[in-house]
Design a binder for these strands. Structure first.
Length: 247
DNA sequence: AATCTCTTCAACCGCCTCCGG
DNA sequence: TCCGGAGGCGGTTGAAGAGAT
């Protein structure tokens, strides 16, 4: 099992280790984590190096208190996506998935639990029963291409352009237009409707989330890693939705 | 001042997916 | 097609600090 080796150091990182890792990443860049311990001269496993870099050493990481708008966004996105911390963190510049997860577990989850029991520390989030969370799975753009070009979409729907246009929300990466396919199926549509509810109470928070909010904040931003999670390929949609348009 | 309890968050663990051979 | 390695993720743990008694 990885990480079980007695020779690999565990626990808190020292300043010296941080410095070695930082210099290594600056010299060789991110990635190829299996080579990092040897290159940096660290007695750490690759995962430990990666985690330390991504959660602590990486430039532009924002530390300290979460602003009110950040908290609001976390709540909204969690309501939409569930515990997809990396996706949620992708919408919060400077915040890591670990930060968001910790914040949720320590600050927000408390508001959701039944404190009547003696040991009421929550083990898992209980979603609002009125909210149906369709857990999205990441897709690889090159293989599934759920984020399709408009040309491609229209070619596939050339017998009904009016309906097609209703089912596609525009996004733009500065070079190309893409279409997000909106499902016809009612159950799947509910997932999207959750995003566009005008006013919704979630976990004790009164949220303001309009369709326009959704259009602006979720779709009109450049298609890049900063705005869409760890990779541009991580599109929110479920495979079932893909099948609606690709029977 | 000493001890106990609670809270926070960095780090680890195990699992899953992807990719190349 | 299968398999092993690497990357990545979410769940969980535990050390350290803060607060209460």
């Amino acid at each position: 099992m990885e990480g079980s080796s007695l020779r690999v150091r565990k626990g808190a990182w020292t300043e010296e280790e941080d410095l070695l890792l930082k210099k290594c990443i600056e010299k060789y860049g991110e990635g190829k984590w299996h080579q990092v311990p040897a290159r940096a001269g660290l007695n750490r496993c690759r995962k430990s190096c990666r985690l330390r870099w991504l959660n602590y050493l990486k430039p532009n990481i924002k530390r300290g208190y979460f602003a009110a708008d950040e908290v609001d966004l976390i709540i909204r996105l969690h309501n939409l996506l569930g515990n997809r911390w990396s996706l949620i963190a992708g919408r919060l510049p400077g915040r890591t998935a670990n930060d968001v997860k910790n914040y949720w577990n320590t600050h927000l989850l408390k508001k959701n639990i039944d404190t009547s029991g003696k040991n009421s520390k929550p083990k898992s989030y209980q979603p609002n029963p009125n909210t149906k969370i369709i857990k999205p799975r990441p897709h690889i753009l090159s293989k599934h291409s759920f984020l399709i070009s408009l040309d491609e979409y229209n070619n596939n729907n050339n017998n009904n352009h009016a309906e097609a246009s209703n089912n596609v929300a525009l996004a733009n990466d500065g070079n190309n237009d893409y279409g997000y396919c909106f499902p016809n199926d009612h159950d799947e549509m509910m997932w999207w409707e959750n995003m566009m509810i005008n006013e919704k109470e979630v976990d004790g928070y009164q949220l303001q989330c309009s369709a326009n909010d959704f259009d602006q904040s979720m779709l009109d931003q450049p298609m890049n890693e900063e705005n869409y999670g760890s990779t541009i390929d991580e599109v929110f949609l479920d495979e079932e939705l893909w099948n609606v348009f690709n029977p």
